[in-house]
């Protein structure tokens, strides 16, 4: 069994404070998991803000080097990648999709320029025809076409469309792994499902593994195969997504699950009421 990605006791610390009060906070502490190369899956990393899930994404993308432990992608330790060629070969296999598509694309650059640049850089497409061919094929996969996108700027597209363009851009070099950091949190509710369904289709049809980072347990339950729940840098619970989220054992996982507002007015109002009573009890105790 070969591993696509293997995290072996990974730790990341960031320094805080000034020159004389050097301290460090541990953003990610001793995290291990592995993605199987033969079986593409959607792997969800769930946690609230500050739980270290975005730091995980940065390390998998090779943008941050861990302070302890190793990240091995396709048999190569990510920290040992040196030189432009090796770096680009790695980038072609691991592609990101970011949270806010309106920030990911420069508003003064037509969005197709990003797609062409990716085709040029990772697929060696030098002439316009081959760039357009690669771009159009990737856009077709996400339910768009080059004709719709060509020459458009980010403000001319809806958030959902733009996020699909971001996914299409990530697909151009035919990656093995996509790291999606909160890909739907800035997208409208009515378009959210189109992105989430797209990830499912990519896994099933293109056999791409996806690391899906989110704080929304409801979509994580909907699409992911396995899940880890993080709190202040540590994994508090992990395993099969359905099993973990149906019966969370850890107190924090239970709190996270209860924080998901049920889509029914009576139940949701009751959840808010319970939370208020709980908070009042906490305040009284303190």
């Amino acid at each position: 069994m070969t591993m696509l990605l293997e995290l072996d006791h990974v730790t990341k610390r960031y320094p805080v404070g000034g020159l004389f009060s050097r301290q460090s906070i541990t953003a990610v502490s001793d995290v291990s998991f592995a993605l199987d190369a033969g079986r593409p899956e959607i792997f969800a990393i769930v946690g609230e803000s500050g739980s270290g899930k975005s730091t995980m994404a940065k390390m998998v993308l090779g943008n941050e080097v861990p302070d302890g432990g190793r990240l091995v992608f396709d048999g190569v330790d990510i920290a040992t990648i040196r030189g432009r060629d090796a770096r680009e070969a790695f980038m072609a296999k691991v592609q990101p999709v970011f949270q806010n598509p309106f920030e990911a694309f420069n508003p003064l650059t037509p969005v197709d320029a990003y797609l062409f640049a990716t085709a040029h850089r990772f697929c060696g497409a030098n002439d316009q025809a081959s760039k357009e061919g690669l771009t159009d094929r990737a856009l077709q996969r996400v339910g768009l076409s080059l004709a719709e996108i060509k020459g458009r700027f980010s403000h001319e597209l809806s958030g959902g469309q733009l996020q699909r363009v971001a996914v299409a851009r990530a697909l151009i070099p035919a990656p093995k792994l996509i790291v999606a950091d909160e890909p739907v949190s800035m997208v409208d509710a009515s378009l959210r499902m189109s992105i989430v369904n797209l990830f499912r289709a990519l896994r099933d049809e293109l056999k791409v593994s996806i690391i899906y980072i989110t704080h929304d347990l409801a979509t994580a339950y909907y699409i992911s195969d396995r899940v880890i729940i993080m709190r202040s840098g540590e994994v508090v619970e992990s395993g099969d997504a359905r099993a973990v989220l149906d019966n969370p054992r850890n107190a924090y996982s239970i709190a996270l699950k209860n924080a998901v507002l049920p889509p029914d007015p009576k139940a949701a109002a009751a959840a808010i009421r319970d939370r208020r009573i709980l908070n009042r009890a906490d305040a009284g105790a303190a």
Binding site: R192, M193, V196, N197, L217, T219, Y221, D246, V260, P263
Partner: peptide, 17 residues
Amino acid sequence: LIASLPRIGDTATRKSL
């Protein structure tokens, strides 16, 4: 809008508009 809300405990495919 209501039908597309994901729920924990339900993995039936949600259609998007």
